[in-house]
Design a binder for these strands. Structure first.
Lengths: 146, 146
DNA sequence: GCTTGCCTCTACAGTCGCTGTAGACTGTAT
DNA sequence: ATACAGTCTACAGCGACTGTAGAGGCAAGC
């Protein structure tokens, strides 16, 4: 069980060094031991914890949700429905976002198909952006960044 | 053609007052006339321009892309292929994002379906986040926020 | 004229989840 | 001994806004 430096942890868990320090600063990673010269020292359990965070991020969970999940992980005797709830919420958000993006895709395709070339002045794409009146995306809330 | 204040423009174009000022600060809205007391004064052309920006944002275009589109709008005699290119690029990004989210949806569904209740210690959702080894989302680049 | 109450002004800090930079120190290989 | 990669702290920046503070402007009712 020899401790590893932050760089090795970074390689093992595939999370950048700077990001690890950031996670520490927001309380996701606890405060690691330090060597005599002040370098952070990690154990293999930290690789797992950090990988867990990375996987959860890849699944689109927010930092807050991940904090909750980590909290639950440390109480293995609790009922697992809290975990299920968080995952369900995440799925619902993904599906909502999917619906928005599908509407967007239809809209963009429609715009592009109507474009027959020519000058900007008569461009149907421009016209479509300008006259958005009967567009379904209008009904949705503001789109999060792509 | 009586000029309107920023609040009326905000109502007409459905863009918040603060956002209008922000757009001005990044050069999307030009510098409006001012009343004797320093209040911004807009014309109906500004409603159209601002609505155009809002529609483009709703379609997910980046600020840079919108700047380009506005630039093109002011030269109506140019060939419209530049507009088409920007829209195509946007569609491609939407489709890429859709593919990512669909993979995510499958993954989350799989996780949740495997959950049979019980204690956190044996939770399959947790296990799925932990052991992500054969997960397709791993192959994708980092996910943008939902 | 005066008050009420909303509108507008500027300037700057905060959001999220990091990333990048500067400048100094540490550890290891040759 | 030297070179070079790794690590440290502290802080600024990203995009696209949003929120705040504190001041001044404007129209309507009394």
């Amino acid at each position: 069980m020899k401790p590893m430096t932050i760089g090795r942890l970074s390689n093992s868990a595939k999370v950048k060094v700077t990001t690890i320090r950031y996670y520490e600063s927001i309380g996701l990673m606890g405060t690691p031991d330090r060597s005599a010269s002040g370098q952070r020292l990690y154990a293999s359990a930290d690789v797992e914890r950090l990988s867990f965070v990375r996987h959860a991020r890849e699944l689109g969970f927010s930092m807050d949700a991940i904090k909750d999940l980590i909290g639950l992980q440390t109480e293995p005797d609790q009922d697992c429905s809290a975990v299920d709830t968080i995952a369900q919420k995440q799925l619902a958000e993904v599906q909502k976002r999917l619906a928005q993006l599908e509407a967007l895709e239809r809209e963009l395709k429609r715009m592009i198909e109507n474009c027959r070339g020519g000058k900007v002045g008569g461009c149907q794409v421009m016209a479509a952006i300008n006259d958005h009146s009967e567009c379904e995306t209008d009904k949705h809330e503001r789109l999060k960044p792509l």
